[in-house]
Every structure is written in structure tokens, then in C-alpha cells.
Simulated assay, not measured.
Amino acid sequence: MMALFWQGLLLAILVAAMSVNADMKVDCRPDYVTLVWRENRNPVDPSHFRLGNCLPTSFSGREVIFTVGFNDCNFRRLVTGNQLIHSNDLMHISSPDSHELSFTHQVVCSYERPKDWYPPTYNPVFNTFGQGAMVFHIGLMNEDFSGPAESTSFPLGSFIPIMASVELQSHQPLLLLLDECVAAATPELNPGSDLYPIITNKGCLVDSKTSRSKFEPRQKSSEIQLSLQAFKFAIGKEVYLHCQLVAWDPVGLDHTKKACNYIKNHGWELVDNPAYSNLCDCCDSTCKSRKMRSTASGKLGLVKKAVLGPFTITENP
């Protein structure tokens, strides 16, 4: 598997511009990177350099060298489309009495993502159509949403991090919403299926009324993150989330296109703009659907059903 993984190794990308008196070389390898910063005029002080939270591994005269693994130094990992990207920041931290300026350069290693990079529980990918192709993703994440979950087993009461996203490609910017989500013990919903409601009423996180579940603050309009507290449903059995994803015009929020958390002793709050939390007032009654507005009217809405799972919820030891 690892041999196949690295067949698609691509060149490293240097995003920031180099100083006129220095140059930076990056050598991306399968599971580590070597970075060399060289000053062309003056000797360097290695104590002033950091790659993430790591000091240089070696230095010599005008060079500082980092040889570090992607699991170290606070590397960020992003998987999007057909790419696996590791990124970090090279920082120069000047002392207060120094005439040198502090600076930051981004370092990126990009690889082709093999089809088997995610376990099957993490890789439901859905194609849809609109003004250019779009791809929807939904998956289980690790605690800080920086990569896929390492386990699909969650103790009762712990958090299940979930992220959904849409690749916009040639589309106008869109806002991704989780319109509906229910948990079931089967990958397909049947009339007699036992269900546990999580998101209902066009974006109302009803589970947040009785738990610590919440939509996280949005990082990108095309992504939505959900911290779902593991619930007492189908304990020890396979659980599937059946969700409806909506990609919508970001200026088109209304009572039927929204993401709402319930805040204890406060009430319903709109995630994207609490000043308009009145859009969530219908969460305790009925948020009436309206027909999708056409692209000709300047509004765009695309809906996709998705199934995430299986994962298991276990009793606490």
C-alpha cells in the first residue's frame, strides 16, 4: 500500500517569495521533508529559526537545515480532491535589539492522493452537476479536524468530529450546509428503521438541545464542521449517518437555509452570523421549505444526499 501511495509524488511548492539575499530549498520525501535556508551574505543564527515549533536539526555557517517528519513540528495536513498536502511555516524570529526583520515563509509538500488513502468509512464522495462539476465530501475527522479519524469507535459521551465540504471548481462561491441528519443502524433507510434525529427542520442541530453537540465556527464557506457528542443509540453496533448536504448562495440564508446551534440559557443561534439568529426561531416549530431559486435569479442551490459510516459507539469502561 505504501509503495502505491508514493507513486504520485509531486514537486514541493514554495508559496512565499524569497529574500533577495537568501534562498530556500525544499526536498519532499515520502514521510519527511528536508529544508535548507541559506544566507548569501551574513552568517545565520540558528536559534532565530523555527519550522513550525521545531528548531533546526543542523546548521553550518550561512545555512540552517531542517530534516523533520510530517508527524512532527505541527505540520498541517489537508486532503482535498486528488491531493494530499502537508504544510508548515518557516519563521525567522528576530531579537528585539536586532536590525534584522522577522519573516514567515510557507512550505508546502503536495502529493497525489491514492484512492485507498482513506478507510472506506471516511471516503463517501458524491458527484453532482451545476455550473461546472462539483464534488461533495463528508467524513470522520481527528480531534482538531486536521485529518481523517484514526478510529471509527467512539466512547459514549465523547465527541465525533465530522466535516463536510464541497469542491467548487469553476462554481461561484457557495456556502455548504447540513440540511438534515439522522442516525440509523443500516446503510439504507427503510420505513421501519429506528432513527436518532441529529439535524432537522432545515439546519437546526436539535441534538444540541440535550447534549454538547455543536456546529464549530466556520473556517471556510465551502466546509462545515460538526462536533457530535456520541449518543446512546445502537450501542456496540454499526451506526450510519444519513445526511442531506446543501451548497447554497452565501447571501441566500433564510429560514430554510441555515445552520443553528442551541445555546443553553440563551436559545437558538445562527452559526454564520449570530446577529441574524431570528432565522433560527422556527427551529422549535416548522421551518417551511421553499422551492429552489433558479440560477437565473442569481441564487444557486444544489442538494446531495450522503451516508457516513459505519462507526460504533461504545459504553464507557
Rank of each mutant, 00 (worst) to 15 (best):
G8Q: 04
K257P: 01
I93F: 12
P310N: 10
P148H: 07
M134P: 00
P119Y: 10
I224W: 03
I224C: 05
V125E: 12
P148W: 08
R62T: 13
S98T: 09
V107K: 00
V303T: 14
A22C: 01
P250Q: 10
P274H: 01
E269H: 11
I198V: 15
S98H: 08
H266G: 06
V44L: 08
L168N: 06
E188R: 13
S277T: 15
S277P: 11
L101E: 14
R212C: 08
L228W: 14
E315W: 06
D179S: 09
T67L: 09
I138W: 03
S211I: 09
D144H: 10
I313C: 04
K305W: 03
T67A: 10
G69R: 07
Q219F: 00
F231V: 09
L253E: 13
W37Y: 15
E167F: 04
L270R: 07
M24V: 07
S285M: 12
Q225M: 07
L279F: 13
C287V: 12
C283Y: 05
N142T: 09
E315A: 14
A17M: 07
W117M: 11
F5K: 06
V251G: 10
C28Q: 01
F154G: 05
N88D: 14
N127H: 13
Q172D: 14
P274C: 01
L11T: 04
V33D: 00
T80V: 15
Q219V: 09
G236E: 01
V26R: 00
S208P: 04
C283H: 04
P217V: 12
L9V: 00
F136P: 00
F103I: 12
C260G: 12
C73P: 03
E180W: 11
C109Q: 04
C54Q: 05
D194P: 00
F75V: 06
R113D: 02
N278F: 14
N71Y: 14
F311M: 01
I198L: 06
P46I: 12
K214A: 14
T314F: 12
L302W: 09
T57F: 10
Q83V: 14
I65T: 11
A149M: 11
L35D: 02
G81E: 15
H242F: 02
P317Y: 05
G157P: 03
C283T: 05
K202Y: 07
A185L: 12
D249A: 09
S297E: 11
S277F: 10
L55W: 12
L177K: 06
V79L: 07
F231K: 05
L279N: 02
P161S: 06
W6A: 00
F215V: 08
Q7I: 05
L226V: 07
L178F: 13
S58R: 15
S285I: 13
Y111Q: 05
A234S: 07
P317Q: 11
L51T: 04
V182C: 01
N278R: 13
D23F: 11
P46D: 06
E143F: 08
L4N: 07
H105A: 09
P317I: 08
E216K: 11
V108W: 08
V36D: 08
Q244T: 13
N42T: 15
P197K: 05
L55N: 13
A234C: 02
S211C: 04
V182G: 00
